[in-house]
């Protein structure tokens, strides 16, 4: 299981930590899932080839591949949405931090 802690966060938000976390989601959740789907599909197609030949078998595999492509596309789209949303929140929190304490005017 990946280490997904935000060690340096002080108030629950840490820009670098959030970025790191998003990268981990991309690499260890989305990418891993997509890679596994592709690899497992190859196993399925090889198994199908051993028991079923012909135009219909090829159509079956093509349709299965099309579904896989759609799912992967949806996974990427959903991750991009999460990335945009979380990054926006992190930026908003950063803006709050900038305005939280005003520098005292020099006497």
């Amino acid at each position: 299981m990946p280490n997904l802690t935000i060690d340096n966060a002080t108030v629950g938000y840490d820009t670098a930590g959030v970025r790191s976390l998003l990268d981990k989601i991309k690499a260890e959740v989305i990418h891993d899932a997509e890679t596994a789907m592709k690899q497992k599909a190859i196993n399925l197609f090889n198994a199908v080839d051993e028991v079923w030949r012909g135009v219909s078998a090829e159509k079956f595999k093509a349709n299965m591949q099309q579904d896989i492509d759609k799912i992967i596309e949806a996974l990427d789209a959903s991750y991009n949405s999460l990335d945009a949303e979380v990054s926006q929140i992190a930026k908003a929190m950063g803006d709050v931090d900038v305005e939280l304490v005003e520098t005292r005017a020099a006497a």
Binding site: V51, W52, R53, G54, V55, S56, K59, F60, N63
Partner: peptide, 14 residues
């Protein structure tokens, strides 16, 4: 099934 024209089937084992 998925536009399976020219469907060539499988035996029960396959």
């Amino acid at each position: 099934a998925y536009g399976l024209t020219n469907f060539a089937g499988m035996n029960q084992r396959d």
